[in-house]
Design a protein around this nucleic acid. Structure first.
Length: 417
RNA sequence: GGAGGGGUGGCCGAGCGGCUGAAGGCGGCGGUUUGCUAAACCGUUAUACAUCGUAAAGAUGUAUCGGGGGUUCGAAUCCCCCUCCCUCCGCCA
């Protein structure tokens, strides 16, 4: 969420930032509302001050046994005005907040201009697509041929966009998750965290999934939400907190199921495990001092890249363009893995620096070591990485001519060889 | 699911209708004392917003005692709803 003070301080810059996202100007109308609100607040506070003074006088008069009827009458007469002003100020504040909450984060200057993914920039590539010497198959062809990936069974149980894994493939999925968590906790300084998969409105608001993206989420009958990513619970651990500066950076990771309605994805990736209503993912979240979020972003992205490197998967790092960068992010690196079966680079991780955008929504702060006033932290999140898609990548890149799959040595401790 | 008890400042803990942003203690910070350390003593120590002033400092006001609403001239204190925590019973992976 944006700070109305930033709009006041430089309306032009605010509108320019929106323009990079392809959005119309908003500063002028926001400032008009803001001016109204502040005028109402000032008037309200003047009346409250008067009311408080009268109350004091009433108290004193009564103690002396004097008549206070006139004072009380004046105080009562202020009530109507105060109620109206308070209601007006609250309505305006709610409207300003709602409008600010609906506007995406300011993009980093590094982010390339452009309306969509065609303007993304490939920054680096690690490894190269290998010639397998035969026509590669897609993961679902491999999995179904092995009898270990069953979409029909999943459809019977739950519907489309679910999968049942069996035997070695089920174990491989579990192995991938374990491997990633162990890597991040042992090598990258993240603390393993077990979190709820069901969260409340406030948590989902804090990470920008509400109010804009409610359609992407599953809601429970008691008003909670299934997490679309562990980013939601992990990041919201910082909500409302004031950390001593020495506590930063905070680095946490979790392996969770993720649930997505995929409401807008009809017809996309309908076959296979690319896009499911439920999938597992290892998430990385960092809460850092504002001065260090850029270096943390690089560090986090390298942590995710390490997973792919150790799994011996060809991948590339992509800097998302203005139009492709998510709502809450100032800057995002995607990691795309090579899928021989699809002959395509596909997203397997997304690492974003949200700066203070989520922190402001969550009211997550730190107290500077010099004892000054609390400041907003910066929050970052990244997949480290999507387990389902890693399974696909390991399958397609490790496939043999006979339909068997060779898995990378890094996983052997987890798969029993 | 049933019954009861609680949420007060960084922490502990008073207050239970009026000058209480909130006693007292702990912790933190500054100082005095001091061979050093400790102790002792003195002072200080919340957040947000608005207005004035703006280079800054600052001044004034308002709000905040889990959240929301109500009663009242006036609410941390009374009433209602919600929420979270604790104890006991029941049930249960």
């Amino acid at each position: 969420m944006h700070d109305i003070r930033a709009v006041r301080a430089d309306p032009g810059a605010f509108d320019a930032a929106l323009a990079r996202r392809g959005l119309p100007s908003a500063a002028a109308s926001l400032l008009a509302l803001d001016g109204e609100r502040r005028a109402a607040l000032t008037q309200l506070q003047e009346r409250q001050a008067r009311r408080n003074a009268l109350s004091r006088l009433v108290g004193e008069a009564r103690r002396r046994g004097e008549d206070s009827a006139a004072l009380e009458a004046e105080a009562v007469s202020l009530r109507g005005e105060m109620e109206a002003l308070e209601a007006k100020a609250q309505t305006l504040e709610a409207e300003i907040r709602a409008r600010l909450a609906g506007l995406p984060n300011v993009l980093d200057p590094d982010v390339p201009e452009g309306a969509d993914e065609r303007f993304n920039v490939v920054l680096a590539q690690h490894g190269a697509p290998r010639d397998l010497g035969f026509a590669p198959r897609q993961h679902f062809e491999l999995g179904e041929a092995l009898g270990m990936m069953d979409f029909a069974a999943a459809a019977k149980l739950a519907g489309s966009r679910f999968v049942v894994l069996r035997g070695a493939l089920a174990r491989l999925e579990r192995a991938l998750g374990q491997f990633m968590i162990d890597l991040h906790t042992r090598e990258h300084g993240y603390e393993e965290t077990a979190v709820p998969s069901l969260v409340n409105d406030a948590a989902v608001f804090g990470t920008n999934n509400l109010p804009k993206f409610a359609d992407d989420l599953f809601r429970t009958t008691d008003g909670r939400w299934l997490i679309p990513t562990a980013e939601v619970p992990l990041t919201n651990l910082a909500a409302g907190e004031i950390f001593p500066e020495a506590r930063l950076p905070i680095r946490v990771t979790a392996l969770t199921d993720c649930f997505r309605a995929e409401a807008g994805a009809a017809g996309r990736d309908t076959r296979g495990m690319m896009r499911q209503h439920q999938f597992r993912k290892v998430e990385l979240v960092s809460i850092v001092h504002p001065a260090h979020s850029d270096e943390e972003h690089e560090r986090m992205t390298r942590s995710a890249e390490d997973v792919l490197r150790l799994l011996d998967l060809p991948f590339r790092r992509v800097l998302l363009s203005a139009g492709d960068t998510g709502f809450g992010a100032a800057k995002t690196f995607d990691l795309e893995v090579w899928l021989p079966g699809q002959q395509a680079w596909r997203e397997i991780s997304s690492c974003s620096n949200c700066r203070d955008f989520q922190a402001r929504r969550m009211n997550a702060r730190f107290r500077p070591a010099d004892g000054g006033a609390p400041q907003l932290v910066h929050s970052l999140n990244g997949s480290g990485v999507a387990v389902g898609r890693a399974l696909i990548a390991v399958m397609e890149n490790g496939q043999q001519a006979d339909g068997s799959i060779l898995i990378p040595p890094a996983l052997w401790p987890y798969t029993g060889g």
